[in-house]
C-alpha cells in the first residue's frame, strides 16, 4: 500500500493525542513539559506533509519557527520549574495548588 498524505496526518493525530493525554494524566511537571514538546513535534509533521503536498517550502520555514517557539517554551518552563523546586522542593503539580486553596 502506498503511503499517502492521510497516513502522515493520522500519524500526527496519534502523536498529538498521546502528548495531550500524557499532559493531562501525568503529575510530574517536567514530564508534562515533555508531552507539550511531543505535541509540537506532531504539528511539525503536519506542516511538512502539507508542504510536500503543495510543493511549497513555506511549511519548512514555519517548522523552523516552531522550533524557536519550542525552545523558548522549554527555556521559560524549565526556569519556572527550577524556581518552584527551589522554593517548594517538589515538581509534583498536585502539591502546587496554593492558589486553589
Amino acid at each position: 500500500m502506498e503511503v499517502t498524505l492521510t497516513h502522515y496526518l493520522v500519524l500526527a493525530t496519534l502523536l498529538f493525542l498521546t502528548g495531550m493525554t500524557g499532559f493531562v494524566v501525568r503529575r510530574n511537571a517536567i514530564v508534562m513539559l515533555m508531552c507539550v514538546e511531543l505535541m509540537l513535534c506532531a504539528v511539525n509533521i503536519v506542516f511538512v506533509a502539507f508542504s510536500r503536498l503543495h510543493g511549497d517550502g513555506g511549511g519548512h520555514v514555519f517548522v523552523l519557527m516552531n522550533f524557536a517557539v519550542a525552545a523558548a517554551e522549554a527555556a521559560i518552563g524549565l526556569a519556572i520549574l527550577v524556581e518552584i523546586f527551589r522554593r517548594r522542593r517538589t515538581v509534583d503539580v498536585d502539591d502546587l495548588k496554593a492558589l486553589m486553596e
Binding site: 514538546e37 510536500r52 523552523l64 522550533f67 519550542a70 522549554a74
Partner: peptide, 23 residues
C-alpha cells in the same frame, strides 16, 4: 522521507541536541 532534509537535520540539532539536553 517527506523531502525535507534541512528540517530533518535541524530536528536532530535543535530538539535532540539542545532542547532535550536542557531537559
Amino acid at each position: 522521507i517527506l523531502d525535507a532534509p534541512f528540517v530533518a537535520i535541524m530536528q536532530v540539532l535543535v530538539y535532540v541536541g539542545a532542547i532535550m539536553v536542557l531537559f
